Simulated scan of single mutants.
Amino acid sequence: MKPKPHLNESGLYDYAIKALARRMRTEAEMRRLMQARVEPGPHGEEVIDATVMRIKQNGYLNDAVYAETYTRLRKENEKFGLRRVRQDLRQKGVSVNLVEKTIGESYAKTDEETLARQHLERKRIRKPSNEKETARIMRRLVTAGFSTSVIYKILRQWDVSDESLSALDNIEEDQTSE
């Protein structure tokens, strides 16, 4: 397969606009995407910088708007916890300060337990009947970004046996020691 030709600034701009039309992206994601379409080296970096500046000036690329929208959608639609959204935004290249500011504002008045219960309801997860199901629910909630204190609180309200909870403690200790 023949490699795609390197793009000049206007070609790269058109490419970037089409990519942004398909879905919203962060500046870091756009830079990674454009990297393959320019010649390697300092000239390619200059073309990327100029293109990113132009896209930002036209209002098509804004990490603050991206972070706010992403956080709101993950919280309202997916019912994800604060930790998950923070991790996802960091992986997408949003700056630490912007992530903390956005998440702080979005999750300030959110009750994590209520959100975790909504997540369980959305995923149609019911009360566990044995240790294996309890561990599965714990993993699902940790993956969704909820704190272990909230998870244990929910499991205790479901009257999960103390043996199951202590087994989870052992699993958790094994994972943190690795």
Rank of each mutant, 00 (worst) to 15 (best):
E27A: 00
E27M: 06
E27Q: 05
A28C: 02
A28D: 07
A28E: 12
M30Y: 00
R31D: 12
R31Q: 09
R31G: 06
R31A: 11
R31M: 10
L33P: 02
L33W: 02
L33C: 01
M34D: 02
Q35Y: 06
A36H: 03
V38R: 04
P40D: 12
P40G: 09
P40S: 14
G41C: 04
P42R: 09
P42Q: 09
P42E: 12
G44V: 03
G44I: 02
G44W: 05
E45I: 06
E45P: 00
E45R: 07
E45T: 05
E45A: 13
V47N: 01
I48Y: 02
I48E: 12
I48M: 06
I48F: 01
A50N: 11
A50C: 02
T51W: 04
T51H: 04
V52E: 00
V52Q: 00
M53Y: 01
R54C: 03
I55M: 07
Q57M: 08
N58C: 04
N58T: 01
G59S: 06
Y60H: 14
Y60F: 13
L61Y: 02
N62G: 01
N62P: 00
D63G: 01
A64L: 11
A64E: 11
V65T: 14
V65C: 03
Y66Q: 08
Y66V: 08
Y66A: 06
Y66D: 07
A67L: 06
E68H: 01
E68C: 01
E68T: 11
T69Q: 13
T69M: 04
T69V: 12
Y70V: 13
Y70H: 08
T71C: 06
R72F: 05
L73M: 11
K75Y: 02
K75S: 12
E76C: 02
E76T: 13
E76F: 02
E76N: 11
E76I: 14
N77V: 14
N77S: 07
K79S: 11
K79E: 13
F80T: 07
F80V: 14
G81I: 13
G81M: 09
R83N: 15
R84E: 01
V85P: 13
V85N: 08
V85R: 07
R90Q: 10
Q91Y: 09
Q91L: 10
Q91D: 12
K92D: 11
G93W: 00
V96G: 06
N97R: 06
N97T: 14
L98A: 03
L98N: 03
V99A: 12
E100D: 15
E100S: 10
K101Y: 02
T102W: 00
I103F: 00
I103C: 15
I103R: 03
G104C: 10
G104S: 11
E105S: 10
E105C: 03
S106L: 08
K109F: 04
K109R: 07
K109N: 08
T110N: 01
T110W: 02
E112G: 07
E112Q: 04
E113Y: 11
E113H: 05
E113N: 11
L115G: 05
A116P: 10
A116S: 05
R117W: 09
Q118G: 02
L120M: 15
L120C: 10
E121P: 04
K123A: 13
R124H: 10
R124V: 08
K127G: 01
S129W: 10
S129R: 09
N130C: 14
N130E: 13
E131Y: 04
E131F: 01
E131S: 08
K132L: 14
E133S: 12
E133R: 14
E133P: 07
E133G: 09
T134P: 09
A135N: 14
R136K: 15
R140P: 01
